[in-house]
C-alpha cells in the first residue's frame, strides 16, 4: 500500500537558525517527487521532518502539519510513523555488526519479529526486490559492509522495504556512488514507485529529470516552485528556478 503526504505551513529550526519557512506541498501516491536546490536550502531537513528524524537532533524544532493519508504525523508515536515512512541515507549505512541477510531484516527483527523462517523469507523477498539476491545469495552470512558501495546502498533500500513502509524518503541516495551503481539504483527507484510513494532529495538535476514525476525547487528554506518535472525543467515559472536549472547558481 502506498500513501500520500500533505505538508501544511511547515517551519523548521536548528536552534535559532530558521531552515524551512512556511513550506506547503503535497506528494502524490505512487509517484516520485524530487526535491532539488542548492546546498543548505533545507532539502534534507524537509524530508527529515516527514519521518520525524529532524527532531532527534538536539536543538531542532518543527512547527506545522504533515499528513500521511490525512493522519497527522506529529500527533502520532514517532516510532510507528518511522516504520510507515522509510528512509535511505546519503551514504550507505548497513549495520557493521550484521551480515547481509541480518541487515536486510534488521528493522523487522529489532521491531520484534522472532520467527526465523519469516525473517529468512523476508530477507530473500526484499533482496530480490532490490535486485541484489542473485549477487549475494552465496554471501548472505558475510558482513553487510563487505559489499561494494552500490550493493550496500541497495541493501539499505532492501532494509527499508522489509519494514513494509508506505512512503520511502531518499536523501541523495546516489551521491556517494559511481555512475553504474547510480543507474542501477535509479532503475530500482523507478520500479519501486509502483508500490510506494517516493520522495527523493537530489542535487543532481539530471537525476531529478530522469526519474521524477514532480519536482520541487527549494531555495533558502522556501519552496520556490513545485510542479510536474517536465514542465518545471522546460518552462520554469520562477526566475530563480530558471537560473538554478540552467546552472547559473547553486
Amino acid at each position: 500500500m502506498s500513501s500520500e503526504i500533505e505538508i501544511e505551513d511547515l517551519n523548521a529550526w536548528f536552534g535559532e537558525k530558521h531552515v524551512l519557512k512556511d513550506v506547503s506541498m503535497e506528494m502524490e501516491k505512487n509517484r516520485i517527487t524530487a526535491i532539488i536546490g542548492p546546498s543548505g536550502c533545507g532539502k534534507t531537513t524537509l524530508i527529515r521532518c516527514i519521518n520525524r528524524m529532524h527532531e532527534t537532533v538536539p536543538e531542532a524544532r518543527v512547527e506545522g502539519r504533515i499528513l500521511l493519508n490525512e493522519l497527522d504525523v506529529y500527533q502520532e508515536d514517532p516510532v510507528s510513523i518511522r516504520s510507515r515512512i522509510g528512509m535511505v541515507f546519503q551514504r550507505p549505512n548497513p549495520f557493521p555488526t550484521m551480515s547481509v541477510s541480518e541487515n536486510a531484516v534488521a528493522g523487522l527483527k529489532l521491531r520484534g519479529t522472532r520467527d526465523r523462517s519469516v525473517l529468512a523469507e523476508k530477507a530473500k523477498e526484499v533482496l530480490m526486490a532490490v535486485g541484489l539476491w542473485d549477487e549475494v545469495r552465496n554471501e548472505l552470512n558475510k558482513p553487510g559492509t563487505s559489499l561494494s558501495g552500490g550493493q550496500q546502498q541497495r541493501l539499505c533500500i532492501a532494509r527499508a522495504l522489509a519494514v513494509e513502509p508506505e512512503v520511502i524518503l531518499m536523501d541523495e541516495p546516489c551521491s556517494a556512488l559511481d555512475p553504474v551503481s547510480t543507474m542501477r539504483i535509479e532503475d530500482l527507484i523507478y520500479r519501486l514507485r509502483e508500490n510506494y510513494t517516493i520522495i527523493i532529495v537530489t542535487h543532481n538535476m539530471q537525476q531529478a529529470a530522469r526519474i521524477s514525476d514532480r519536482t520541487a525547487f527549494l531555495y533558502m528554506g522556501e519552496l520556490i516552485e513545485y510542479g510536474p518535472t517536465k514542465r518545471l525543467f522546460e518552462k520554469p515559472e520562477n526566475e530563480l528556478t530558471e537560473r538554478y536549472i540552467s546552472g547559473r547558481f547553486g
Binding site: T56, V79, R82, R84, L110, R111, R159
Partner: peptide, 23 residues
C-alpha cells in the same frame, strides 16, 4: 560509533532503547 548507525536504526522505526542496546 558513527551517528549514521543510530540514525539507520531509528529511521527503521526501532525504539530508542532498542537502538541503544542492540545496535
Amino acid at each position: 560509533v558513527p551517528n549514521h548507525i543510530r540514525e539507520a536504526a531509528i529511521a527503521l522505526g526501532v525504539p530508542k532503547w532498542k537502538t541503544s542496546l542492540f545496535v
